[in-house]
Amino acid sequence: MTRPPTAAQRRIVDAADPVTGRLKGTEAQLAALVGRGLAFRHPRPPRDHFLTPAGHRLRETPGDSGPAAAAEGPAPAASGVFAARAGGEEGTEEGPARLREVRGAWQGLMELRRMTRPDGATDLPCAWERTHLVQAAALALEAAGHRPARAEGGGGYRIRTTPQPEAVAVHEPDPGALRACAATLEKAGWQVGEHTEPRTGARYVLASPRRT
Rank of each mutant, 00 (worst) to 15 (best):
W128F: 09
R199Y: 09
R210F: 00
Q107C: 11
R160I: 15
V81L: 14
G55H: 02
R36G: 09
R44G: 08
A16C: 07
R160L: 15
A15E: 15
V81D: 11
L33E: 07
A202V: 12
R22N: 06
P46D: 05
G154K: 07
A54F: 05
A140F: 02
V19M: 10
L58A: 12
K24G: 07
A97T: 12
G201Y: 08
V134E: 02
G104W: 09
R117A: 15
Q29M: 10
Q191R: 14
W128D: 08
R57W: 10
R100A: 15
P76E: 14
E152Y: 10
A202R: 14
H49L: 06
A169L: 09
D64W: 07
S208V: 11
A16T: 09
G80S: 15
T52P: 10
Q107A: 13
V170Y: 02
F50V: 11
P67G: 08
A71I: 13
A167G: 07
R10E: 11
P118N: 01
D48Q: 13
A140L: 01
H42K: 12
E93Q: 14
Q191I: 14
Q107I: 11
T162H: 10
Q191N: 11
L133Y: 06
A177Y: 04
P76A: 15
A70K: 01
W128A: 03
E194G: 00
C181S: 04
A77E: 13
P198I: 12
P173W: 00
H146E: 14
G120V: 05
A143F: 00
H42G: 09
R113C: 01
A32T: 13
L23C: 10
L141G: 06
Y157N: 06
A169M: 08
F40E: 10
T162R: 08
A28S: 14
R59K: 13
A15V: 10
T200A: 04
L33F: 04
E27Q: 13
R59L: 04
E93W: 10
E194F: 01
R114P: 04
H42C: 11
A137R: 02
P163S: 00
T52L: 06
A183V: 12
A71N: 12
E89G: 09
R211P: 05
L112R: 04
F82C: 04
L109A: 03
A138V: 02
T26A: 03
P173L: 01
R199V: 15
A177R: 15
A183Y: 06
P4K: 04
I159C: 04
R210N: 04
